[in-house]
Amino acid sequence: MEERNRNNDIALFVRESRKKVNLTQVELADITGVGLRFLRELEQGKPNLMTDKINQVLLFFGHTLTIKPISDETRRSMGS
Rank of each mutant, 00 (worst) to 15 (best):
M1C: 00
E3Y: 11
E3Q: 12
R4K: 15
R4E: 12
N5G: 00
R6H: 04
N7D: 15
N8Q: 08
I10E: 09
I10V: 15
A11V: 06
A11L: 11
L12H: 04
E16V: 05
K20C: 04
N22E: 11
Q25P: 01
V26N: 08
V26R: 10
V26A: 02
V26I: 12
L28A: 03
L28W: 04
D30G: 14
D30P: 01
T32W: 09
G33M: 11
L36P: 02
L36W: 03
R37M: 03
F38H: 06
L42K: 06
E43W: 07
Q44A: 14
Q44L: 13
K46M: 08
P47H: 05
L49N: 04
D52F: 11
K53M: 09
I54H: 07
I54W: 07
L58R: 11
L59F: 11
F60Q: 03
F61W: 05
F61E: 06
F61N: 01
G62W: 09
H63M: 12
T64V: 09
K68S: 13
P69V: 11
I70Y: 04
S71R: 10
S71E: 14
D72Q: 12
D72M: 09
E73W: 00
R76A: 15
S77Q: 14
S77F: 05
M78Y: 10
G79K: 10
G79R: 11
G79Q: 09
S80W: 14
